[in-house]
Simulated scan of single mutants.
Amino acid sequence: MSRPVKAVGTAGPAGTEQPGKTGKRLFRTVPAGSPKAPGAPAASWLRRAAVLTGLTLALVAAAVAGLALGSVRIPPGEVVRALLPGAAPSPFRTIVVEVRLPRVLLGAVVGAGLAVVGCVLQALVRNRLADPFLLGISSGASTGAVLVLTLGIGVTTAVAMPVGAFLGALGALVLVYALASRGGGMTGTRLVLAGVTVSYILTALTTLVLVASARPEHFREALYWSLGGLGSARWDTVWLPAAVTCAALPLLFALSRPLDLMLVGEESATVLGLDVARFRAAVFVLASLITAVLVAASGAVGFIGLMVPHAARLLVGATHRALLPVSALAGAAALIVADLAARTVASPQDIPVGVLTALIGGPLFLWLMRSRTAQGAAL
């Protein structure tokens, strides 16, 4: 039998609620009996620990494979020896430390960041088909970064492109949100359709800017980058996405409870003390910032934010306290493995990793749409 929902106000002594004293905080204390997020049942702590341990080992194995395999195969023992402090200079050490290690680290950061942002966006819009790529955020970031590149605005710095990408991503998100909210309330279907429309428009605009560029080398460089790839990873390009992701992910983990409330529904979340409008706007800006920095470093790598959260829900359920860290580990390992495949399948040719993720994620997206339609669920 469900328990009645208590009135929500500011927290009193011993964690009690005092009705009638509403505050203006982003969210207030939530009663212990508040409803849980819909979806798969929450996994036990033992199962969550086992999943996190397994994914950590998988991430370590993927990183070692990413450092050892390539056009030049390096024995795992040599990889470990090359990573030890004070190791003697050698060709193996140069390949591992200067070439492959920045690429593996960037893959882990981008994969973890996109997977967590995908989880967060799916909770904010209550639609499991949402991710930065489908909602136009990645396309907006690509457009902003390409404008900075082609116009020559501070191209010698590692900050100009992320700033341009952030402005483009935020502008795209505001436009998608405005289009989806017109003519009645925002629904998941309207949001996805608006995101796809804006994404196509921004992709066309990006191509137009590249074609009109007076410098052909910009076209080749930006076209390859826009497909998504980690081949340009260097130590001076890894620090910014790593710093932003490491700072933002703990903050998103701390918002697990409000994200669970968003899945319940806006009306219920409001009754339970969440300022939905302010919370959604703040997290949208944070998600845009993370996406922009990652896209500026790696290009538009699509569908990681769609595929990984679905796999994580099968392992630990829909509760964000478990879902977000599992998604981060799984996303990091998945993108490292995808990039390893991209640079070894047609070696020495380096295939953009975004091409592989699109080949896998596109059919998965169609399957998810078909399964949700068969279940009678709205997009």
Rank of each mutant, 00 (worst) to 15 (best):
A123F: 05
A58N: 03
G185R: 10
A141S: 15
G39Q: 03
S347D: 13
L101D: 06
L101E: 06
A330H: 02
I336T: 09
S232N: 14
R28A: 11
I95W: 05
T94V: 15
L151Q: 15
A312N: 03
F219A: 14
G317F: 04
P75H: 09
R220S: 15
S90W: 14
G152Y: 10
G77D: 15
A160H: 04
I304S: 00
G113P: 05
G273M: 04
T206S: 15
S142W: 01
E217W: 06
M262N: 04
T22V: 14
A204R: 11
A374L: 14
G86E: 05
S268V: 13
V163M: 06
L135F: 10
E267L: 07
Q375K: 13
G113Y: 02
S138A: 15
R28Y: 03
P325M: 06
V116N: 05
L151N: 07
S142Q: 13
G23C: 09
A333L: 06
C246M: 12
L205I: 15
A49S: 12
P76T: 14
P258C: 12
T156E: 14
T29A: 12
G154I: 08
G185S: 11
A330T: 07
T150G: 05
V238M: 07
L46R: 13
G33H: 04
I153R: 02
P31I: 08
W45N: 05
S90V: 12
V211E: 12
V353D: 04
A158K: 04
S139L: 10
A43E: 05
P35C: 06
A328F: 01
A269K: 02
L252A: 13
T203L: 12
L106P: 00
G118K: 06
R278H: 10
I304N: 00
L167R: 00
L210D: 11
P4L: 10
G15P: 01
F27C: 02
V283M: 09
S71M: 12
L55D: 01
L114D: 01
V174R: 07
G9H: 05
P102E: 00
P162R: 01
F253S: 12
T16L: 08
P91T: 10
S139M: 10
V326K: 03
L306V: 04
A341E: 07
P31M: 04
V293A: 02
G113S: 10
L129A: 13
V30P: 00
G111S: 10
V155A: 03
T207E: 15
T56R: 01
T206D: 11
G299N: 09
P76W: 12
R128Y: 07
P75C: 11
A222S: 13
V72L: 14
G20M: 09
L274I: 12
L26Y: 05
V104L: 09
L324I: 09
P85T: 10
A14R: 13
G111L: 07
V79M: 11
A115R: 00
V79F: 11
H320L: 03
G140V: 07
